[in-house]
Write a protein that binds this DNA or RNA. Structure first.
Lengths: 155, 155
DNA sequence: TTATATATTGAGACCCATTATCAATATCAA
DNA sequence: TTGATATTGATAATGGGTCTCAATATATAA
């Protein structure tokens, strides 16, 4: 299996995962699974980077010319709510970006006993992304370490 | 001189600095110093956090009801170019934020060209403290690095 | 000071991304 | 198959932000 095959394979696996997540999300919220929604997700996953609704519309038209702009906006909002997509507003046009499946966790580190505690704070991650947006920076990963004294050692 | 006086004094100094920087910027770019521009900067500096043009307009109207919306947008753009203000597009409305004069130890790092950008984000710091409080941890310092592709390299 | 070149202003028209409306249609559970 | 209701596409509406332009203000030189 070559590198390309592996990547393709990974793509497909991811795509299925994301489709499954989306379908689950719809079911759990009493929303319906429609060909439009599936097609939009499928085409979106085939695209890379920051995707505008306009891009998406162009790419979808050949496969289903009847699909309406409003449905694109509505579906992208669902994908965001389902945790699959992130919305950016750095430029004049809103863009949508596929969220990576891998989440990072951060660490609390005690200077004295070296105890470490893993944590995750969604708002910190949100503001990290904001910082990156301000600097037109594509965030791939991050490292955050909070250093101090743990509740035992500070006594 | 008491703490309050010192803070007030610092405020005034900062304000003058920013006005000076703005005036310099205008001169160096063959732009003109107008009462509208000065008023907008003055009022903006009196406001806190993320300011919308709408907020600004409301606050300015009592002092100069004739000032036009277009001038607000134009002037905010100048302040951004002069390095005094940052624009955000997190939500539906654009907001403008006064840039801090003092920057410190968090970094954006480009994986490709190693360019680093220093930044600080008060809200991230706030939530860092929150995490530490939850874990009864005395925060002494922190390290945060956001790693990705800079705006040049991502092209 | 006065004249001159030109930058700036405010009003309102305009643009265009996004959202709301609504009747027709599709989904899904019973 | 049926019925409740979620969804769709077309289109109107919204609203932030920009553009245009004639009137005005600023900076500079004489």
């Amino acid at each position: 299996m070559q590198s390309n095959d592996y990547e393709n394979c990974f793509q497909i696996i991811n795509m299925n995962n994301e489709l499954d997540i989306f379908v689950d999300y719809l079911k759990q919220h009493n929303l319906r699974c429609t060909p439009q929604r599936n097609l939009i997700l499928k085409i979106f996953l085939e695209m890379e980077g920051h995707v505008t609704v306009e891009d998406l519309h162009k790419k979808i038209r050949p496969e289903d010319p009847t699909i309406g702009i409003a449905t694109l906006y509505r579906t992208m909002k669902l994908l965001i709510d389902a945790g699959l997509v992130e919305m950016h507003n750095f430029n004049d046009k809103t863009t949508y970006e596929r969220l990576y499946m891998v989440k990072h966790h951060d660490h609390l580190i005690c200077q004295i006993c070296n105890k470490t505690v893993e944590f995750e704070h969604p708002l910190i991650e949100k503001y990290q992304q904001e910082v990156c947006d301000q600097h037109e920076f594509d965030l791939k990963s991050h490292r955050m370490e909070l250093i101090g004294f743990c509740n035992e050692c500070k006594k």
